[in-house]
Write a protein that binds this DNA or RNA. Sequence first.
DNA 1: TGGTTCTTTTGAAGCGCTTCATTTGAGGCA
DNA 2: TGCCTCAAATGAAGCGCTTCAAAAGAACCA
Lengths: 356, 356
Amino acid sequence: MTDARKARLGLPQPNMADVARHAGVAIGTVSNTLNNPEKVREPTRRRVLASIDALGFVRNDAARSLAAGSSDTVGIVLVDMGNSFFVDIARGAEATLREHGMNLLIANSDIEIEKQLSYLEVFEQARVAGILLAPLDPHITKSLVSKAVSRPLVLVNYAPEDAQYAGVVADEHHGGYIAARHLIELGRRNLVFAGGPFQLQAVAERLAGVRRAVGETAGTVLSLVETTGMNISHGRTAGERIIAQEEHVDGVVAASDLVAIGIIQVLEQQPDLRIPEDIAVVGYDNNHFASESTTPVTTISQPGEEMGRAAAELLIAEIRGDGGAEKRTVVLRPHLIPRRSTIGTASPADLQNHTA
Amino acid sequence: MTDARKARLGLPQPNMADVARHAGVAIGTVSNTLNNPEKVREPTRRRVLASIDALGFVRNDAARSLAAGSSDTVGIVLVDMGNSFFVDIARGAEATLREHGMNLLIANSDIEIEKQLSYLEVFEQARVAGILLAPLDPHITKSLVSKAVSRPLVLVNYAPEDAQYAGVVADEHHGGYIAARHLIELGRRNLVFAGGPFQLQAVAERLAGVRRAVGETAGTVLSLVETTGMNISHGRTAGERIIAQEEHVDGVVAASDLVAIGIIQVLEQQPDLRIPEDIAVVGYDNNHFASESTTPVTTISQPGEEMGRAAAELLIAEIRGDGGAEKRTVVLRPHLIPRRSTIGTASPADLQNHTA
DNA sequence: TGGTTCTTTTGAAGCGCTTCATTTGAGGCA
DNA sequence: TGCCTCAAATGAAGCGCTTCAAAAGAACCA
């Protein structure tokens, strides 16, 4: 059977015993050459490595992790691979894991809870070293997580109340704050916050941040335009409501880039309104097309990559850490990316890097 | 050591022997219950399943694939997770694999050859059942592939000349053809093909398709605007060249949506030019923002998901197939998605589904 | 009841690796 | 030379599963 497989693969698929024989050493020495090179004398090591090369040996990870009781692969379950935010998280996590000699395997659950569970189980079966979970909806997640996972796990983009798991989240409040600050610093005093529904936690927090900034500067007023969703058509609706407003609005904080784009599309059709001279718009999320649209949109960039990195760090600590270290929740700050929709054709250089 | 691990995980992590003991059967019976249920008598099976549930047993995949000599997981190496085309491929592959009870693990290589190699090796070490490789640049890939992979492998979006591997590709020629046909059917006779550089194979093929369509209809002329790249700024440059052209152009086939958007941005600034009445524009790739821009862009949609599905089918056949079945290359056709940039505000219903 | 056939269950033999107690051998010192 | 020490190398014992030849049971007929 095995021979049949070998034949089909066309290659002998040598194992450690073959390497050991070829190099004239014991099997344990081959293992040490690979895993504890400092325990093997230089010439011996050389010989073993040469044999590995000669035979084209690739160590069998299944056997390795079976024997060792653990693997050096981490799994991440992403809710939506179509969303660049999650892709950034994966990228960040991967970079950090790589620095620690570990690998990242990605599973795409496409918002379907069932798949999310199924992949959690795949990782569980594979006995991965740890799991990163980037859920979309907190509620759904909650029940998920406690299920079936008996492995180090870190939550990304979701703050667990029960300190059972470590987590990494973005500081939405701060994002709203710096968006509004940016407008205020540009001299705008009549602001609108557009997006919704407000009961979405992220939206609520962004709004709170905006409110704080508005409250800090006397003479600034804020009105709200609540939408039922966060895509372009919702943005258009919001735009029309903004135009219809009695007072002259000179600054808009949109809860997403799509909403911002929709608003801009409507505003641009008004012959007497110029962006940003008459009205400046800030979006949120740094979607690809926020920078690609006719009027590039100033936006709040989620710290996706940093979140991924931080999550990986936490996970590694948890994997290494013997026993129950406290489960921390790391909060990372988004930053502002100034573009034409607020600063016009001015050089963005002097406004760049509002990372703090 | 193992006990320490168990303790740290907080759960006993029972194995098959535990289950067998608990159910009062032999270990082989537990295995059969899971893998060959038809070989186990109903009551016995029930008892075993009950025990599995009671103990919270999760089978160890490392041991499983070590013993069985193969796993039921397939790996895919994506060059660019930020590109929705590749994400679609992964989605399609995943769907098909799932129907066959297999799982898909995604590795993101971010255009870095080194990472691509490294993940190929990870999959190799993990002894995955097979590998899907979706490279970006054919040249790079060629050397890559033959290296280090002794496992069923299917190439997506790259047609291997040497029939060493099966592959799935999109029919670029057809894409160019239907883009031009669409314009011709709308009565346009003075076309431009914009994009480049022309030595990119995909661009060359799309252009060939356009040429064929133009050649088929008497009275239709085609001029070329070659760009040095395929993003929005290249599109703007192309747009200016189109405006400068002496003859009146009434239809444009752009080699990418970004180029199309750039062109549209320039054209829209001409006061006397209306889109699509005076000039219609077709893009390519169905990028997200092609549909989201102010003037939604008619585009050729790559059959990403179908390609993923087809690739998975091929791979499964190869995994199952004993011995060297011929390595096929499946060619899939893209289809047209009509939007405002060519059909204006007309209902797209009667133009939809130009899938053939 | 005994014999025959077919179904179900059993459990030992690996799969290829890591681990670690043990052995080997080199080097230093008297 | 002999003895001791410490570094290097050894190889047997698992890790948890699948497999499969063999044993046990069930079902049937004479």
